[in-house]
Design a protein around this nucleic acid. Structure first.
Lengths: 176, 176
DNA sequence: CCGATTTAGTGGACAGTGTCCACATTACGT
DNA sequence: ACGTAATGTGGACACTGTCCACTAAATCGG
């Protein structure tokens, strides 16, 4: 349901219906509809993270190799944006955690980004002094691009590819 | 209602109730709840734009002055982030237009950003070649920061100020 | 000025939703 | 084997968006 219609589409009664059970049965597993939604959000976030590690896995080259490190960073960004476009419902759901009990999963997008940036430092591509805290602007720019082009005013913009290329270039500019 | 609880909180029946009228009366003014929401979204977006022009208005210095131009760009970014934090409900609503009939208002955030960047070129601060399309990465990074720190996983993060300073530095880096 | 037409509001209804309560069933460990 | 915990059921309530037929008020052309 989240995949098809985003967070609003995950409706408790329909979920129980699809599983062949009466609505109230859900309350033996979740206190709230919000708790159910939180679980779905965690699953969506997990799928995003998995796509990112899959993207990393597709670039070959030893850890510490400068070009490989750069390509790995590009790969996680590309996977992030690709996920947002291929699964807009799940992407929106991943970041629609109700209140605040987001007990982070093992492999989180931010963690993967940090790993990639650390490798970039290790490979001598990124100045260690510039490394500090740079994950936040980079995450922001990728996330902002994803949100604006899938849910925001730039959604269905014909030149999405160009916009993404521009953000990629901007990031590359900010690293050197 | 949007101000207090975001887009989900704008509920048709309560709106009519607060205006002292029966629910169905709303259907003489809006075809849908979505059409009502679209109107609210437009109003929210307008308030965001107004805050941005107010921010521009507070920096003095003639158009074309390099330092003034830079401060004006910083001002619209700061206004954007400040609005997101002071009015999280309205900010979320501004970007929650139902489907896609967002007949853009006169002064839109993107338009204001473009003006500021054009002035930066005019003042000789920004290389005209680098100007082309740079509004998208910049909008993305500011929007991404706003979203992540007000609705996303970084919401209520104690070091929001630092994160915003980092994105500001990253943008400055990308302009020179 | 008056009658017709548009505009705005009313009342009642329906399906769908989240949630609560008391009750029945099933599974399981000692 | 039995008591306890886990799970599912049935019925209800308040709330939501939306539809229909009907009424009151405002507006406007002759």
């Amino acid at each position: 349901m989240a995949r098809a219609g985003g967070p609003e589409a995950v409706v408790l009664r329909e979920a129980t219906r699809s599983v062949g059970v009466v609505p109230n049965a859900a309350y033996r597993h979740f206190a709230d509809r919000d708790e159910l939604l939180a679980e779905v959000c965690a699953a969506a976030m997990n799928e995003l993270a998995e796509r990112m590690v899959a993207g990393i896995g597709r670039v070959r080259g030893k850890r510490g190799n400068p070009e490989a490190a750069q390509r790995r960073l590009a790969a996680i960004g590309a996977a992030y944006l690709e996920f947002a476009h291929q699964e807009p419902g799940l992407f929106a759901t991943a970041f629609a955690v109700p209140q605040q009990h987001t007990y982070a999963a093992a492999r989180t997008p931010l963690g993967l980004l940090r790993d990639a940036l650390d490798e970039l430092v290790e490979a001598g591509v990124l100045d260690p002094q510039r490394r500090e805290g740079i994950e936040y602007p980079i995450w922001s720019i990728v996330h902002g691009t994803a949100v604006l082009t899938t849910q925001g005013p730039l959604r269905d913009d014909p030149q999405v590819r160009r916009i993404e290329a521009l953000t990629s270039a901007f990031i590359g500019n900010g690293l050197t």
